[in-house]
Simulated assay, not measured.
Amino acid sequence: MRYLILGSGPAGIAAAKAARKLDKDAEVLLATEEHAAPYLRPLLPDLVSGERELPGVADPQGKNLADLKVRLLGGKRARRVDSAKNRVTFSDGTEETYNFLCVATGGRPILPLALMGAPGSFLFLNSLGDAQRVRERAMRSDTTVVYGPGYLGIEAARAMRKLGNQVIWINPGLPRFGNPISGEVEARVTDQLRARGVKVHEGTEIADVIDVDGKNYEVVTAGGGTIRCHLVVVATERLPNIGFLDGSGVKAGAGVLVDEYLRTNVSNIYAAGDCAEVYDVNRRESRINFGWRSAIKQGQLAGENMAGGGKVYIKNAEDYFGLLFGTPLLERVKA
């Protein structure tokens, strides 16, 4: 038996380990576009701020993959899935076959339209490489605009301020997917950021970015205001990274549509984590459940079910993003 898991985030690693646990003799492959060892994405702002060094963001889930005989294939970005031939083609031209496939490719950040015309003005804060680039550039900057809603924007603004930058946080409002932080908690956190010198522009968008001289930029807000800065950090919500499934026959909405067993309409293909639109048996609707804890839970169930289990995914209150990052987030901002 051959299990191929796409993605080395929490869902992918959990799926690989679960499949290995139930199927001792199977071949388990974990293919990821990352070149780095698995890391904890929620801790990337701490890497930017200098509160953690590189070893401090390593994902402990990924440390014993070799011992479990899970083969990690780095630098592998999925380009196409041929579900009829049980084959995945990667962007480097290589291919891998499978008996069971788990899609756990997470999401990609949304780029505001206004930034597309000024590519030198911004950096994403989405991957380990992004965090390293943001820190390097921020060390040479005085003023940074952070764009992004909710938790992601808060953490990016906190990190940049901790690094010593003057920070203007443009908060466009509630994220379109996942579970937002409760209004009361976000208001308290925002007050703490203001107390630490972060200027907050709420409920607005970036309308334009003007490249002044290749080093300085003017950000124009939807309300007509202008902000002079050296860098824009894009810390937006992430949309499911599933474009490579086009033409595969796997059904998708905003994310990969899966039933309560994390199984797609193609019987030997499963999906888990931020890319999966999971059927909620309690609410009787499909939704994307962004968050580290729910990704691990989904990945584990997908791995078990690929290997012959029959467990149903039932979300509980602890899977909700807002409950996970309430008081702890407030304490982080105060620190």
Score class of each variant (00 low, 15 high):
Leu193Phe: 10
Asp211Asn: 15
His201Leu: 15
Val185Pro: 01
Lys215Phe: 14
Pro180Met: 07
Val189Ala: 00
Asp208Gly: 00
Arg194Thr: 06
Glu202Cys: 02
Asp191Ser: 14
Gly203Leu: 13
Gly203Ser: 13
His201Gln: 11
Arg196Val: 01
Asp191Ile: 05
Ile206Gly: 08
Ile206Cys: 09
Arg188Val: 02
Asp213Lys: 07
Lys215Thr: 08
Val209Phe: 03
Gly197Ile: 00
Arg188Lys: 03
Glu202Thr: 03
Glu184Phe: 04
Glu186Pro: 03
Gln192Thr: 12
Ile206Glu: 11
Ile210Gln: 13
Val219Tyr: 06
Glu205Arg: 14
Thr221Leu: 15
Asp213Tyr: 06
Tyr217Trp: 09
Val189Ile: 08
Gln192Asn: 08
Arg188Asp: 07
Leu193Asn: 13
Lys199Leu: 11
Glu184Thr: 08
Gly183Phe: 13
Ile181Trp: 11
Gly197His: 08
Gly183Tyr: 14
Val189Met: 01
Pro180Ile: 06
Tyr217His: 07
Glu202Asp: 02
Thr204His: 01
Val185Gln: 00
Gly214Met: 05
Asp191Glu: 15
Gly197Glu: 11
Asp191Leu: 11
Glu205Ala: 11
Gly214Cys: 04
Glu186His: 03
Thr190Pro: 00
Leu193Thr: 05
Glu218Tyr: 00
Leu193Trp: 09
Asp213Gly: 10
Gly197Trp: 13
Tyr217Gly: 08
Pro180Ala: 03
Arg194His: 03
Thr204Asp: 03
Arg194Gln: 13
Thr221Met: 10
Arg194Glu: 14
Asn216Ile: 04
Arg194Trp: 00
Glu186Gln: 04
Gly197Ser: 12
Ala195Met: 15
Glu205Tyr: 14
Gln192His: 12
Ala207Gly: 09
Gly203Gln: 13
Val220Glu: 13
Glu205Asp: 15
Ala187Gln: 12
Glu218Ala: 06
Gly183Arg: 09
Asp208Trp: 04
Thr221Asn: 08
Leu193Met: 12
Ile181His: 13
Gly214Gln: 14
Val219Gly: 07
Thr204Asn: 02
Gln192Tyr: 07
Arg194Ala: 10
Lys199Pro: 07
Arg188Pro: 05
Ala207Trp: 01
Leu193Gln: 09
Gln192Ala: 14
Glu202Trp: 00
Asp211Ile: 06
Val220Pro: 05
Val219Asn: 06
Val200Cys: 10
Arg188Asn: 01
Val209Met: 09
Leu193Lys: 13
Ala207Pro: 08
Arg196Ile: 02
Val209Asn: 12
Glu218Ser: 03
Val212Trp: 01
Glu186Val: 08
Glu184Ser: 08
Asp211Lys: 12
Asn216Ser: 15
Arg194Met: 12
Ala195Cys: 12
His201Phe: 09
Lys199His: 06
